[in-house]
Nucleic acid binder design. Structure first.
Lengths: 337, 337
DNA sequence: CTGAAAGCGCTTACAG
DNA sequence: CTGAAAGCGCTTACAG
């Protein structure tokens, strides 16, 4: 272990009190300019780095924010994380990142860690919001902003999200404008908030247009290409009259496109496909997926900004933010023939 | 601010000393089983959570590890991060993630933060390793493992990486085995270690086979589809006799494939393409890129394991780890005609 | 403007 | 087995 200078060392070195050193490095007004410069100089000379954990202990502020995600490998979420990191690190906060793999236990542990580590705030895309988890969050007593899901009612906390419902309606309305009436849906599991919203939009938009999708028009998959591929196969078999499909996310949509390509089913000739997310891959030459774009990085930035405000102004409960989606028309949709 | 119980509160509540409470929660042997249970019970009743920052201060151990990456949005790196997080969180460490965007200043700030926050260790994919940065790392005096680059010589620290040189040779040898002799190279900027290694392999392998690539056979791009696309255009123009191209990463390769497809240049009929990374997209139906796979998540896991060992056994300097690559043959290469 | 003292919430020898 | 005391490295009233 090498010698590490503390505030005492530099006080001793200069023959001043630790209070003076502290004041010098914290830009406290009650200090003579000259003294301050001497101290700063000594700090440099002794290679002094202030100990942030000691400071945290006394200030009850750790300048760390927790970011809880189900899977950083998901291109959507990694973009969000990028946005979060950008504004947080600019604001002097460090971001502690936790991957939950959608496992309740990992979510719980992360929250517990946040409590013990005295994190200043949390950005959370939680999947499990049962009694115990809600109580934990309450007990934490720190600002939390939710992402991609609404907070439970009794938790008065803001969220940042995109309007999944409205965004999905855009996609469906577009399909309808192309005269499709037999539209299939490849969705996400019921547990996911976004999955539910996108499905609700599907149902509502169709029924608003006097259409009642048959039960076999919907199929559920995971967020993988393989699942999209396999889901498309199932859907086509169950609902062969279908002329268009709305996939709840781009990964699923692209998997579906793969299946269609392999079966030599023409897109958009025979089947139109719309996705949701507008991932980078979706714009690739062979894919050119028509989809609904969400401002992913922006979402992360907004969440971080909101949280910083809450951390800085204690008790502040700013309004939630609903970002706009945009329909990106590319080449996977055509009028029904 | 709500009331938050401290160790003192629970000591007072029970009429015991704080030492006793401390011993109870830290599984110290010197405590009666009964007393211990009473304490644990009280902790639960008072909703007590130990303050990890106080503990860190005294133990000089924060149970946090820094992970510095240029861009979490890069699918390769997000997989690495995922592996890192998995083993670190299982080991009770929290991971503080810093995005550097390849900016020296952000790297520097992150390192500084690591020093102040008394992080226990660092996993680092650094781009800038000048004098000042090296001194900073030395000054940190904590275990560091490097990823995707070698540490500067004077820093005796291990790294975890794939053998980019050997991996690239696999790709080139394969092309050579298909009788290609006019092979182009789409590379990465000189600043990147991996870029240099892959280029070196290109040069060596060709010359080992009596081939001397003309200067115009090499073109340099960024890690984006657009850059791959544009690079391929330049390369084709500069080196039209070329029958195959080795792209230093899959993103570049896929961008190149896009350009080729758009120009109706047959792959692998007229041009063979090999990439490096084996991203998920590379296996998509329309792409089926022949490429060199690296175990990305594994890489993260190994780095984390190495680091935990170093943190736990002070002064330990374990050997570096070089993981194997694997040539994945798909559909973008064919024998030269 | 400067310093001495108390204290943040813990852990850890040291006595008993 | 238990407790009193010192101390981790800082900040922050409080005096002067």
């Amino acid at each position: 272990m090498r010698f590490i200078a503390t505030i005492k060392d530099i006080a001793k070195y200069l023959g001043v009190s630790v209070s003076t050193v502290s004041r010098a490095m914290n830009n406290h007004p009650d200090i003579r300019q000259e003294t301050k410069e001497e101290v700063l100089e000594a700090m440099r000379k002794l290679n002094y780095t202030p100990n942030a954990v000691a400071r945290s202990l006394i200030q009850r502020k750790s300048y760390t924010i927790g970011l809880m995600l189900p899977d950083i490998t998901d291109p959507f979420l990694s973009a969000v994380a990028h946005g979060v990191e950008e504004v947080l690190s600019d604001g002097g906060y460090q971001v502690v990142y936790g991957n939950t793999s959608k496992r309740r236990e990992k979510e719980y542990n992360f929250m517990m860690g946040a409590a013990q580590r005295k994190m200043d705030g949390l950005i959370v895309t939680s999947d499990f919001m049962d009694r115990e988890m809600i109580d934990l969050i309450k007990r934490l007593d720190i600002p939390v902003v939710f992402m991609r899901r609404r907070p439970p009612e009794e938790l008065e906390m803001p969220f940042v999200d995109v309007d999944h419902y409205k965004g999905s309606c855009q996609a469906l309305d577009y399909l309808l404008s192309l005269n499709h009436t037999r539209i299939g849906f490849i969705g996400m599991p019921e547990t996911s908030y976004t999955g539910k919203e996108r499905y609700r939009a599907y149902l509502d938009t169709l029924s608003k247009n006097g259409l009642t999708p048959p039960p076999q028009s919907r199929v559920v998959g995971e967020k993988t290409y393989a699942s999209g591929y396999e889901s498309m196969g199932r859907l086509m078999k169950a609902y062969p009259e279908m002329t268009a499909v709305f996939a709840a996310n781009d990964i699923l949509a692209i998997g579906a496109l793969e299946w269609l390509a392999e079966q030599n089913i023409s897109v958009p000739g025979r089947i139109s496909v719309v996705g949701f997310d507008n991932l980078e891959v979706s714009d690739l030459h062979w894919i050119k997926l028509t989809t609904v774009a969400q401002p992913r990085k922006e979402m992360g930035r907004k969440a971080a900004e909101l949280l910083i405000n809450m951390v800085q102004e204690d008790g502040l409960s700013p309004p939630s933010i609903l970002l706009d989606t945009e329909l990106i028309i590319r080449r996977t949709c055509a009028p029904v023939r």
